[in-house]
């Protein structure tokens, strides 16, 4: 996962405390509220310049930090392929 990703997620996780965000961290348990989903999408767009596909707006995507990052990475790759430039999502 990208350091920018952890940084953008942190404000949404009111129960995170001093813990580090790991890929298997449950976003719901850490305090992500479905009412904040649109704000989270804006943060993702602003940070990575990608829009997540509508088909990925489901509980599976938002289950863990890792599952969300997988979807973001795919969107970054897809956009890189479309632009003809390769952006590697670490």
């Amino acid at each position: 996962m990208d350091a920018r990703f952890s940084e953008l997620l942190t404000p949404f996780l009111k129960f995170l405390g001093e813990q580090e965000i790991t890929p298997d961290a449950s976003l719901r348990e850490l305090g992500l509220d479905s009412m904040q989903a649109i704000e989270l999408l804006f943060a993702i767009e602003d940070t990575f310049g990608v829009t997540l596909p509508d088909d990925d707006m489901n509980d599976t995507t938002f289950a863990t930090a890792g599952s969300l990052w997988t979807v973001i990475s795919a969107a970054i790759d897809a956009q890189g392929a479309a632009d003809g430039t390769r952006v590697t999502a670490a």
Binding site: S34, M35, A37, I38, L41, D54, M57
Partner: peptide, 13 residues
């Protein structure tokens, strides 16, 4: 309705 308003924003199509 509040929930649905947020959900509507997630489905631009």
């Amino acid at each position: 309705h509040l929930v649905d308003g947020k959900l509507a924003l997630l489905d631009a199509e």
